[in-house]
Amino acid sequence: MKHAPSNRAALLALALFGVTGAYGVDAPPAPPVAHEVMPPAAAIPGESIYQLPLQLTLQDGRQMPLAALRGQPLLVTMFYTTCQGVCPLMAFTLRRTMAALPEAERARMRVLMVSFDPARDSPEALRGFAELNSLKGPAWLLARTEENDVRELAAVLGIRYRQLPGGMFSHSAIITLLDADGLIRTQTGTLQETDPALIKAIGDVLR
């Protein structure tokens, strides 16, 4: 954990990072991380999930900021690979939902599943889950991000979770539909069956 900076360091950091750039971090300068530059804040709508400056590592090892997904509607949920109960069910529901879409719509939809468990869910583990649950094709994005960012993403999506002593997670199961700009259009907790309201909302958002 970082130590509280002295006043001097704070002023220095202020000078270095400027006032509009870094979000919340006021630490001594760190080596630059290889990632794409974030689009200017003004362009992203205030309510858009892409305001979150988090970094994703996908199952194929690619790294990208969350905001790189902007431009296409997205189904988002959160899970973890060692989950026995609900997560496989969620994956199944998402597959059925995608299958229920007309061909043209399905081609334009993507699904992002972010792990609660970055410590254990490496890209390899993510690949394993995708295999096991038949989540094949470019539409399926399984990702991990930093622990701090997991909490923030869950907060934005209204998902509650906590880690239990055995390493399992207790969490709510919510599927969220985002429009191309990252605004939440609808959410559903319906599992196993496809939610007709969700299917309709997907149609609306692709129009």
């Binding site: 989950c83 109960g85 609900v86 997560c87 069910l89 509650r160 239990l164 399992m168 997670f169 207790s170 969490h171 709510s172 199961a173 907790g189 599992l191």
Partner: peptide, 11 residues
């Protein structure tokens, strides 16, 4: 409600 809260259920 185990399905609603995967794992141990609501506290």
């Amino acid at each position: 409600d185990r399905l609603r809260f995967c794992g141990e259920g609501a506290l």
